[in-house]
Design a binder for these strands. Structure first.
Length: 634
RNA sequence: GCCGGUGUAGCUCAGUUGGCUAGAGCAGCUGAUUUGUAAUCAGCAGGCCACGGGUUCGAAUCCUGUCACCGGCUCCA
């Protein structure tokens, strides 16, 4: 028979040939590297028999598909090892994921990370034995019989469409319901490591029982695995919680409360720089600033619907002279009240009101995470009141504004989601459809790729979310843009139209950075604590060589400060080497060494954090350089 | 909230099968050194061993409750 290859060439094989035979015919090196194959667009095992006219591509560990198959097979090896070591374990599922794989188990008694090395050892035995993955097809009755005391497998089996005979893979004594494909034998797994254990609800539903998940990763070679582990260690060094401590930016104090960060002077300064930039950018983009109180009468939250739809995230009311007040979890009702304080004309719209608004939300203790998930945070919030004919243009300009902001902070990569109507929500289907369509149209207008996140909208409207990733690759939602027909209705928000009758504006809720806490947390990790010049709390530190250079150091500092550069002097009686080391540890962008030579010549010796020793130069030259970098925010 | 783990000086960490006055480095303070591109030297001080209860002649160590933190799950800016 003849089969075709990806390069369009045709090879001739015997009538009973398999995908493996095709690989062998192409080359012996490929046969050795082969893990699985794609036949007519479908991934299959190497043992898959070919038919005349098939188009065949061999999958190796070099491709993303190959890597996924390696990891998926590794998860089966993990399960087989667990079955041998802990015979009464019940098995959940074990897929490949972005950076590795996991398998969920219900162990007869709890295990911990200390047990992973024993499981790894057993896996290595299985790999050394080059045990084959054997595929079979069973009818449902036989499979149900085989999975006897495996309730999770039984549940999966019961949900399969009746007309289908599912496929099964057997590895030693372990058989799993699985679509495949798998590597031909366990010897193909060249490098793997078990990383951690975790609790995970069966099928991701907290109403179900909790299983024990084991995470691991696998690569086609030890070298690639080592590189990956090194990246993980590097990521730990970028952790904003570690850097926040090292750089003295913030801390979270047990006696103050979980999830309530305290900003130290340097952290607060970075925050101030971001806030200043943010306010200026907003004022320049047609926004006005508003300010509202942090607590409001419970009546406001009843009108807005938060009391009914958002209460699980809100703190309990406090009693003030018999009236119930609530700490705000959102800023929108306050801004609406400002709008409603007088009659608005169609000529005023769009109204764009922005506020760095601090909100407090109840978050379950287990979800708190440094600055990235807290209980009190400041949103870079704004509410736009627009006429229907202005809606799409306004969304487009908000999206453009977001892209500008993120780019300024060095974020070039993010994920975009369009979240649709959740179960707990208010408003008519018609309004939801209209709002969703407007967001979609705007995204397409700007040409931004996005995914749909079904049912993830807010209770009052759909939203566009943008997520950026932390050092460990976890995605955090920062930007959010929400279209809302409902709150204007609930508060009876109106404007007088050209026709002299009342009309209902549409609201856009939006936060570009999301919250300053989360954004700065991501920013610390993004820059690994080495902030670009415009954001660095200390931009330059002047290092006098000996006490007699203090006067000159102060002249230099005064000059820099006068130009608006944040400069400090290291007054300590320490060696230059020591002062440099400490400045390096604090990741100060510029170190200015001044001694006899500099004082005599009236210049400065410059060492940059990024580039090292730059040699001597006139102070004016350095300043011009710094001013340019600050201006460019580079 | 749930599963597993952790909690010793400001920070990073030792602390053996329960047994001397709980240690080290860094940071801090004092003194000496006046230093040329990643740590000068010496001395001193610093601990309710997260917090509460229990077991024991004796607890940092064992048991238990609470809190916080870490990795996930669920949930979210």
């Amino acid at each position: 028979m003849k089969v075709s290859l990806p390069d369009k060439s045709i090879i001739e094989l015997s009538a009973d040939a398999t995908a493996m035979d095709a690989a062998a015919r192409i080359g012996s090196r490929l046969a050795k590297a082969a893990l699985a194959a794609t036949v007519n667009g479908q991934q299959v095992d190497l043992s898959h028999p070919l038919a005349d006219g098939d188009s065949v591509a061999i999958i190796t560990g070099d491709s993303a598909e190959g890597l996924e198959i390696i990891r998926h097979s590794a998860s089966h090896i993990l399960a087989a090892a667990v079955q041998e070591l802990y015979p009464h374990t019940q098995f959940g599922i074990g897929p490949a994921i972005a950076d590795g794989f996991y398998y969920d188990f219900k162990f007869p008694s709890p295990i911990s990370e200390n047990d992973l090395s024993a499981i790894e050892a057993k896996m290595k035995e299985i790999i050394k034995a080059k045990a084959p993955f054997e595929r079979s097809r069973l009818c449902r009755e036989v499979a149900a019989e085989m999975f006897g005391a495996q309730p999770f497998k039984q549940e999966l089996l019961a949900e399969l469409p009746t007309e289908e005979t599912a496929s099964y893979y057997t590895l030693g004594h372990f058989t799993d319901l699985c679509r495949g494909p798998h590597v031909p034998d366990t010897g193909r797994i060249k490098a793997f490591k078990l990383l951690s254990t975790a609790g995970a609800y069966w099928r991701g539903d907290e109403k179900n029982q909790m299983l024990t998940r084991i995470y691991g990763t696998a690569f086609p070679s030890q070298k690639l695995l080592d590189e990956h582990l090194e990246r993980l260690r590097e990521a730990e060094r970028r952790d904003h919680r570690v850097l926040g401590k090292q750089l003295d930016l913030f801390h979270i104090d047990e006696e103050v409360g979980a999830g309530l960060p305290l900003w130290h002077p340097k952290g607060a300064l970075i925050r101030k720089i971001i806030e200043d930039f943010w306010r200026d950018a907003h004022l320049a983009s047609g926004y006005e600033m508003v300010v509202i109180p942090h607590i409001a009468s419970v009546d406001l939250w009843k009108t807005s619907g938060h009391w009914d739809f958002y209460r699980e995230n809100m703190y309990s009311p406090m009693d003030i002279e018999g009236q119930e007040y609530i700490v705000k979890p959102m800023n929108c009702p306050g801004h609406i009240k400002i709008y409603k304080n007088r009659t608005r004309s169609y000529r005023e719209l769009p109204i764009r009101w922005a506020e760095l608004g601090t909100v407090y939300r109840y978050e379950r203790s287990g979800v708190l995470h440094g600055l990235l998930r807290v209980r009190g945070f400041t949103q870079d919030d704004a509410h736009l009141f627009v006429r229907p004919d202005q809606l799409e243009d306004e969304i487009v300009s908000v999206i453009r504004f977001v892209l500008f902001m993120l780019k300024t902070f060095g974020f070039e990569e993010y994920e975009v989601y369009l979240s649709t109507r959740p179960e707990k929500s208010v408003g008519s289907d018609e309004h939801w459809d209209q709002a969703t369509a407007a967001l979609k149209a705007a995204l397409e207008d700007v040409g931004l790729g996005y995914e749909i996140d079904p049912g993830e909208g807010v209770f009052y409207g759909p939203k566009i979310d943008m997520k950026i990733r932390d050092a460990l690759g976890r995605a955090w939602q920062c930007t959010t843009i929400q279209v809302d027909f409902n709150l204007p209705e609930r508060f009876d928000v109106t404007y007088v139209g050209e026709d002299n009758t009342d009309h209902r504006p549409i609201m856009i809720h939006r936060a570009l950075l999301g919250s300053l806490e989360r954004f700065i947390g991501c920013l610390i990790e993004h820059y690994a604590g080495a902030f670009p010049l415009w954001l660095a709390p200390v931009q330059a530190i002047i290092l006098p060589i000996a006490d007699r250079h203090m006067d000159y150091a102060e002249q230099v500092a005064a000059r820099m400060t006068a130009e608006g550069v944040r400069a400090e002097i290291d007054y300590r009686k320490e060696s230059v080497g020591r002062k440099i080391r400490d400045a390096e540890m604090e990741k100060v962008p510029f170190m200015i060494v001044v001694g006899d030579k500099e004082a005599d010549a009236g210049n400065v010796s410059v060492r940059s954090y990024a580039e090292g020793d730059l040699g001597a130069m006139p102070l004016d030259e350095l300043l011009a350089n710094l001013m340019r970098q600050i201006e460019e925010k580079s």
